[in-house]
C-alpha cells in the first residue's frame, strides 16, 4: 500500500472527524459565541482538503502500490515490534501507579529489551532493566524530588 496515499486518506478522515467535532462544540457564553469554534473549524476544513490533495497527488504519481523495496517479511517484523512496544507502553501505564515505579519499569524494559535484544540475552536484559529502574528511581525521586509512585505495602 502506498503509505503516502494512506497518509492522505488518514489526514482526510482526521480532518473530517475534527471538523464535525468542532461544529458540535457548545457556544461560548461570553464574547462572540462562535469565537472558540472558528479556528477548529478552519483547521478541520484545511486538513480535510490537504488530505484529499495528498491522496490524489500520490495516487497520480505512484499509484496505490507501495514503493518500499524491503520485503514483506521484514516489514511485518518491524510492525510487530512497534506494536509490541506500544503494547508494552500501555501495560507500563496500567501498572505504573499500581505497583510502583521500579517494578513497572522493570517489566516495561524487560519487554522492550527482549524485543531489541532477543530472548537469548535475558540475563543482560534483566540486569539492565533492574539497574536502570533502580538508578533512575534514586536519581529522580530521592535526588531530584520528582514524585514517582512507590511500591505498595513497602513504600519504598
Amino acid at each position: 500500500m502506498n503509505l503516502s496515499a494512506l497518509a492522505g486518506i488518514f489526514a482526510f478522515v482526521i480532518g473530517a472527524i475534527y471538523t464535525i467535532q468542532a461544529f458540535m462544540l457548545p457556544n461560548a457564553s461570553i464574547g462572540n459565541p462562535m469565537a472558540p469554534k472558528v479556528l477548529p473549524i478552519g483547521l478541520g476544513i484545511l486538513m480535510t482538503f490537504f488530505g484529499l490533495i495528498l491522496t490524489f497527488q500520490e495516487v497520480r504519481k505512484n499509484g496505490l502500490k507501495s514503493k518500499d523495496k524491503t520485503d514483506q517479511k521484514e516489514k511485518d517484523d518491524n510492525v510487530k515490534k512497534i506494536v509490541f512496544t506500544c503494547g508494552a507502553a500501555i501495560i507500563y501505564a496500567l501498572l505504573f501507579n499500581r505497583i510502583g515505579y521500579i517494578l513497572s519499569t522493570i517489566v516495561f524494559l524487560e519487554i522492550v529489551l527482549t524485543l531489541f535484544n532477543g530472548k537469548k540475552k535475558w540475563k543482560t536484559n534483566t540486569a539492565v532493566s533492574i539497574c536502570f529502574s533502580v538508578f533512575i528511581y534514586i536519581v529522580f525521586s530521592k535526588f531530584l524530588g520528582v514524585i514517582l509512585p512507590k511500591i505498595p505495602f513497602i513504600y519504598i
Binding site: A89, Y92, T105, L109, F116
Partner: peptide, 11 residues
C-alpha cells in the same frame, strides 16, 4: 540497549 534506555528515560 541504548534504545530501550531512551524509552525508559522518555517515559
Amino acid at each position: 540497549i541504548l534504545y530501550p534506555i531512551i524509552l525508559g528515560l522518555a517515559f
